[in-house]
Design a protein around this nucleic acid. Structure first.
Length: 528
RNA sequence: GGGGGUGUAGCUCAGUUGGUUAGAGCGAUCGCCUGUCACGCGAUAGGUCGAGGGUUCGAGUCCCUUCACUCCCGCCA
């Protein structure tokens, strides 16, 4: 019954027998004089009072009914409160909130743009901002030294469970005359107070640990490590160059340039054979050649038990134990491959093994900073040097001492914040020196002329006395997702689109009339 | 663009080895009951088994194609 009615009557106490403690209004009742129907309800396509799961299709089509349901209703209220709180905190920190244009120019790099045709300028298009990146830098140049905005961002890329198609919100912020640490201080304070206020879960670290990008890839196999997971990856390639190790398959691969990395699990010598074999089988399902394993035991002297245990001498085992902090009773899972593939499989294995051993405390938030991203990276397919993140980031080191001959060694003041393995945001100290920018762009293969064409507004602004500045942009949707303990971003979004970027309720996107197209000087040329 | 999962009544689902007329709970409608609050009781309606094709004496079930939703890879500086 979802019909809306208006009742005239007297509220009276219930008789003692009819008091119901289970409901809020259980001690009173209304004696009805008259009632009228204000809004009639047809047969419901889905029940409103129920904890049952329903298909996304029906939920999205009737979102206004879905939103009446308790769980998601509360999620949306939480979202509102979190945003108010953040606004308030940012103001307290001395930041000013500014709006930036929604109709702007298409950016040449990064994600696909949403385009909006211009009626007054036939053949030309606006783009919806992927982020207010250039505007916030211009705000700094304009002399407002602390800016923030709960900013809508638009990217025409495919969806994921934690990534809305089309649009999402960032807490966009930027500060002048700052170094990386200053940005960290603001964001850490904000996140700690927000997460303490809106969640009962523990924060694993009061001060967020800082992990370098290269360390993260080695120890966790990814640049968004879940630090709730205590497992750590070690590189033990050198062990396989020893004479007293006879694991020939790995030794051959190592000779050809492969590396060996391993994960140590504590005190798992009594786990059944099936535990180990399942993980090996799982790794094969993931497209790896499997995970070799052995368990470290000790009778009179240290030895390795398991299918490949016999290949390791006592001395080599002691060396492995030293390198990995492994102890007697622990087990070791080994993978051998090229670096990229190793990072992929050890990262997945770290999650899988921790899950199987139940090592992850679901009641904690583990934040960390990932810092020292490389400025450039080599594209495997084209072999060309490209910007690895934001081309506007400031390279590290004294400017006249940077070795531009070895671009892959240049680090940037570029950082990410990660919580429980989810990337919340990335940010950077920006490059505010035009000459340096031209130099960096030239390494990535752009001539001065091209840079001027694409970023004229930006470069021009930086030529009239720009303060050093930097910032970051934490994802609002993902923060609320973590606080609401949801795995899907639609659970914290009021009117989300489906995976194909369609709004099933409003029927968007939709076709438009010939007249509208004509006014915009557009004609359609559909595939097939 | 690629891979996996799901698709049976308005909703959530069951449906055996391919075998008679496809079932249940909730919801809806009608009636009964009236101190109920997820009321109770009785009855009724409700199905292109996602769609199309094939195999078979016979297909919800097997095969092929396709569509929708979803998860993942690519993509997201």
């Amino acid at each position: 019954m979802e019909t809306v009615i208006k009742i005239d009557g007297k509220v009276v106490d219930r008789t003692k027998e009819t008091i119901n403690q289970d409901i809020n209004t259980g001690e009173v009742e209304v004696v009805i004089d008259k009632f009228i129907i204000l809004g009639e309800c047809k047969e419901l396509p889905m029940p409103v009072f129920s904890d049952q799961e329903y298909s996304e299709e029906i939920r999205l089509k009737y979102r206004f009914l879905d939103l009446r349901r308790k769980k998601i209703h509360e999620n949306i209220i939480l979202r509102s409160k979190v945003i108010s709180f953040i606004r308030n905190e940012m103001s307290k920190f001395g930041f000013l909130e500014f709006q930036t244009p929604i109709l702007t120019s298409s950016s040449p790099e990064g994600a696909r743009d949403f385009l909006v045709p211009s009626r007054l300028n036939p053949g030309k298009f606006y783009a919806l901002p992927q982020a207010p990146q250039q505007f916030k830098q211009l705000i700094m140049v304009s002399g407002f030294d602390k800016y923030f905005q709960i900013a809508p961002c638009f990217r025409d890329e495919d969806a994921r469970a934690d990534r809305s198609p089309g649009e999402f919100y960032q807490l966009d912020l930027e500060m002048s005359f700052v170094q990386q640490e200053d940005v960290f201080n603001v964001v850490e304070k904000l996140l700690v107070s927000t997460f303490k206020k809106f969640s009962n879960k523990e924060l694993m670290f009061k001060e967020f640990p800082k992990i370098t990008y290269s360390d993260a890839l080695l120890k966790y196999g990814t640049d968004k490590p879940d630090l709730r997971n205590p497992l750590i990856i070690n590189d033990i390639t050198e062990i396989f160059t020893r004479e007293d190790v006879s694991f020939e398959i790995f030794k051959k691969l190592v000779k050809k340039g492969s590396r060996v990395r391993c994960i140590v699990t504590k005190n798992t010598k009594d786990k059944p054979r099936s535990f180990f074999d399942n993980i090996d089988k799982w790794a094969k399902d993931q497209g790896a050649s499997g995970l070799a394993y052995f368990t470290i035991e000790k009778d009179k002297e240290v030895s390795a038990k398991g299918p490949v245990g016999k290949f390791f001498s006592k001395e080599s085992l002691e060396e492995i134990m030293k390198k990995t902090q492994g102890k007697v009773g622990d087990s070791i899972f080994l993978a051998c491959s090229n670096q990229k593939e190793l990072e992929r499989i050890t990262s997945l294995a770290r999650d899988k093994i921790a899950k199987d051993l139940n090592l992850i405390d679901e009641n904690t938030f583990a934040f960390c900073w990932v810092i020292d991203y490389p400025m450039f990276e080599k594209n495997d397919q084209t072999n060309k040097i490209e910007f690895s993140h934001n081309p506007f980031s400031m390279p590290q080191g004294e400017i006249n001492k940077i070795n531009f001959e070895k671009p892959l060694d240049i680090l940037a003041y570029q950082y990410d914040i990660v919580c429980n393995g989810i990337e919340l945001s990335s940010g950077a100290i920006r490059n505010h020196i035009p000459e340096l920018m031209y130099k960096l762009f030239s390494i990535a293969g752009y001539e001065k002329k091209q840079v001027d064409e694409k970023f004229r507004g930006m470069i021009n602004a930086l030529s009239y006395g720009a303060p050093p500045h930097g910032g970051i942009a934490p994802g609002i949707d993902r923060i609320v997702m973590l606080l609401a303990n949801e795995k899907n971003i639609r659970e914290v979004t009021m009117f989300p689109m489906n995976q194909n970027a369609e709004d099933l309720m409003m029927n968007a996107p939709s076709e438009v009339s010939e007249n509208q197209l004509k006014e915009l000087s557009l004609s359609l040329k559909l595939k097939k």
